[in-house]
């Protein structure tokens, strides 16, 4: 795993982000960044503020304070459309699918393909969907059924396909493997590697320590709305990360690269 050089411009730079709901502080002065071709794992308890932070980056929520830069340029993400225009795509934990619509309609929702007369080009959308879905899951055949009648895995595949079909540069994956079986999980891991090699930056929100250590270059842990540590994956052990998640601090006597020192 290549470490991105420190002086390159980060793909995403979030500085001093704050979000509160009334008196409740959900995200407390958090800074995070993401480089091209890098996977950053985002860990923390439920309610630690990681989903909130990701919703801010995907434009679904506006922060009270803080600056977000994409490719070194300051941006304002007022709506999911703004984020999409910058190549920020999100796979939501809830999948965010319209249950009564079929797979192609969901895949292209909000950016439908149209004929020159401005009509929906359902034929082309079906064809494109068939290709991209087939790549992710060769058994995906019932494309014209409403997605409510599909299996959890198929629904997940649609959500993933929707994020990578368009010109994605920054991908936010919120628990992408939660609804998947072993073979589909392996497929997602493979996909993450492939996207990474294409220079796409990925934020991976996960509870699965195994996934995080397998796929991520860096890991960022949130606790009670604060960023309690961002580390290169080689510098920490699973126990260190668990300690960060639970206590909000590293175990006593921790030094970077302890793993190598022990071996």
């Amino acid at each position: 795993m290549s470490k991105p050089s420190k002086n390159a411009t980060p793909l995403v730079d979030m500085k001093n982000i704050e979000k509160h709901f009334g008196g409740v502080v959900a995200v407390n002065n958090v800074s995070a960044n993401l480089y091209a071709g890098e996977v950053v794992g985002l860990l923390g308890h439920n309610g630690a503020g990681k989903s909130c932070l990701m919703r801010i980056l995907s434009g679904a929520m506006t922060p009270n304070e803080g600056v977000i830069s994409v490719n070194g340029e300051k941006v304002e993400l007022k709506s999911p459309l703004d984020a999409r225009d910058l190549g920020i795509e999100t796979i939501y934990q809830t999948l965010a699918l319209a249950n009564h619509l079929n797979a192609p309609s969901n895949l292209f929702l909000g950016r439908e393909l149209k004929t020159p007369f401005g009509n929906l080009d359902d034929k082309r959308m079906l064809e494109e969907s068939r290709q991209v879905l087939h790549r992710l899951n060769p058994n995906f055949k019932n494309l014209l059924d409403p997605v409510s009648s599909l299996s959890g895995g198929q629904r997940q595949v649609i959500a993933i396909a929707r994020a990578i079909y368009f010109n994605v540069k920054i991908l936010i994956m919120d628990e992408p493997t939660a609804a998947l079986g072993p073979s589909e999980t392996a497929m997602v891991s493979e996909l993450i590697q492939e996207l990474k090699n294409q220079g796409i930056g990925i934020f991976l929100v996960s509870h699965d320590m195994h996934d995080v250590f397998d796929l991520c270059d860096r890991v960022m842990v949130m606790n009670k709305g604060r960023n309690v540590g961002t580390h290169h994956i080689e510098d920490v052990t699973k126990d260190d990360v668990l300690s960060l998640i639970i206590k909000g601090e590293l175990p006593g006597g921790w030094t970077p690269g302890k793993k190598e020192a022990v071996q």
Partner: peptide
């Protein structure tokens, strides 16, 4: 249709 099916999903989809 999308709005009636899942308003939040439709909003997130732009």
């Amino acid at each position: 249709y999308a709005t009636g099916s899942n308003e939040e999903a439709a909003r997130l989809a732009g």
